[in-house]
Amino acid sequence: HNLTITQGKLFFHYNPKLCLSEIHKMEEVSGTKGRQERNDIALKTNGDQASCENELLKFSYIRTSFDKILLRWEPYWPPDFRDLLGFMLFYKEAPYQNVTEFDGQDACGSNSWTVVDIDPPLRSNDPKSQNHPGWLMRGLKPWTQYAIFVKTLVTFSDERRTYGAKSDIIYVQTDATNPSVPLDPISVSNSSSQIILKWKPPSDPNGNITHYLVFWERQAEDSELFELDYCLKGLKLPSRTWSPPFESEDSQKHNQSEYEDSAGECCSCPKTDSQILKELEESSFRKTFEDYLHNVVFVPRKTSSGTGAEDPRPSRKRRSLGDVGNVTVAVPTVAAFPNTSSTSVPTSPEEHRPFEKVVNKESLVISGLRHFTGYRIELQACNQDTPEERCSVAAYVSARTMPEAKADDIVGPVTHEIFENNVVHLMWQEPKEPNGLIVLYEVSYRRYGDEELHLCVSRKHFALERGCRLRGLSPGNYSVRIRATSLAGNGSWTEPTYFYVTDYLDVPSNIA
């Protein structure tokens, strides 16, 4: 807008934040220059609390790290170098490059900038070799853009010569660093050979998330399962459950009422301010606690030095998902009996873990797994792929695949051998790939016309006998059925096997 004052003059007093240069501009645009008398524009009460600059400061050096910015700028000295009290560095987070010096300023003089007072450097006698002032900004957020400017702080001049310097606002972004852990990993099994893994992005990506790394490792069953005799009275049979499938998407929606109208769909109840505040506090606490764990609990591995020492970490090797089922080394339970199943799973520490690289999504279907087997899954978020990966501390989750139908069934015939004193040795093959492992066998036998009897055969007993022995049988026709019990439950009964026990007292003698 054009402003013209045809008559009258300007009068400025007691404006401590208004620089004289701005008042002189007002004289020019209003056409009143030359009308004012000496005392109409006070030299001592206008701009006496402001830094009124008329020179431009330029930054000469900028260096960044993930949490620091090192700045240096060209030296500046007023005509009387004693008038320079120091520099004021202003900075704040700036997602967009549209910041002005006066953003967030209120009537009390406060604003949204963080201000650092910096002492002037030592003055050199040689004007050509003056030290460049600077400042190291610490405690910054990774991968965050900051708006920065600097200006001088000078003393009051009796001659009211307006001098000083100020830089333009520059924008500097800190470097990326390792992201925080992925949030809320959930693993479920939808079949006997697959596990579905879902997660949420890290709360602090500290860069642009480029991919996720998912490692999985087959877990050995508890050692007590191999040692305890679950045929003993009072000892509860062990059981394991597989990871249940995901709930429906509708039930997972946030901010939804727990109660549904019987007449149909209901609208979600909005969260109160107290609920939102509580969630923010919980989120802040979780982030602080995660940072504490990362800094205190997890110790970084030592990389190899120039002395030739090897990095103890196993090298990563990509495998196809079809090879995942046989990740671990199978060892027989008892070496003397080769027909026992290889369900003991000690994992070799030198073995390469299978892994998958996930790009542009937060889910993965891990296939080719062994049925009813526990897996430990390790999830890392990465925001750099080359020249070397920059990934987060791992988040861990466990899951067990679903049982395989008929995996616990005894394959092959049940054979028998009759000894003296009416002892019958029953023999059968253990299931080759049971659900988890076989903890015991149930032997059901009966003599024709009598009630059915049951015998429990422990895992250890089966390994020693290759089956079991029935003792003290009365003469007669017998039928026997056997079924295995694994961590997933009972298998199917075998087809009945028949044998006849004679009275050993009636056996004919070869003595003449």
Rank of each mutant, 00 (worst) to 15 (best):
I377M: 09
Y292P: 08
T307M: 13
D273E: 10
S239Y: 14
S262V: 14
T343R: 07
N421D: 05
L440G: 05
A381F: 01
D408R: 00
E290R: 08
N383T: 06
E249W: 08
R481Q: 03
K357F: 13
T497Q: 15
V501L: 06
G467F: 04
V214M: 02
I366K: 03
Y498P: 06
S268C: 15
P475H: 09
T401A: 03
E217F: 11
Y396S: 13
A335P: 10
L225R: 09
Y504F: 07
L440M: 05
A309G: 11
A309R: 10
S486M: 00
R447A: 11
E221Q: 12
D450K: 03
E258F: 14
P413M: 09
I482Y: 01
S257D: 06
Y292Q: 04
K317A: 10
E389N: 11
V414Q: 03
F246G: 10
S251G: 12
S251E: 13
Y375Q: 02
E217S: 08
T272S: 07
G491L: 01
A394F: 09
S274V: 06
R316T: 12
C382I: 01
A309H: 14
E452A: 11
Y259A: 12
R390T: 11
P354R: 10
F499R: 01
R240C: 14
L369K: 01
K278L: 04
S341F: 09
R313V: 12
A220T: 14
E451S: 15
S474R: 05
P475C: 06
E495V: 05
L369S: 02
T210I: 15
I438S: 03
F355A: 12
P300S: 07
H461E: 05
T485F: 05
E279F: 03
F355T: 09
C266Q: 11
L293S: 04
T497G: 12
S284I: 00
R466T: 06
S341I: 05
E260R: 13
E217L: 15
T340E: 14
R459Y: 08
I209A: 06
V480R: 01
L379P: 01
Q256H: 10
S342E: 05
R376P: 01
E420P: 11
C456Y: 02
W216T: 04
K287V: 14
V414N: 01
S257W: 13
L369E: 01
A463D: 13
S223D: 14
E356I: 13
S284A: 12
V358Q: 15
P338T: 10
H352R: 08
A405P: 06
R240I: 13
E221N: 04
T288N: 11
V345P: 15
E258S: 10
D291S: 06
E282K: 06
E265W: 13
L369C: 15
T303C: 05
V359Q: 11
Q384M: 06
H254M: 10
Q275W: 11
P431M: 01
S223G: 05
S444M: 07
P332S: 14
N383K: 03
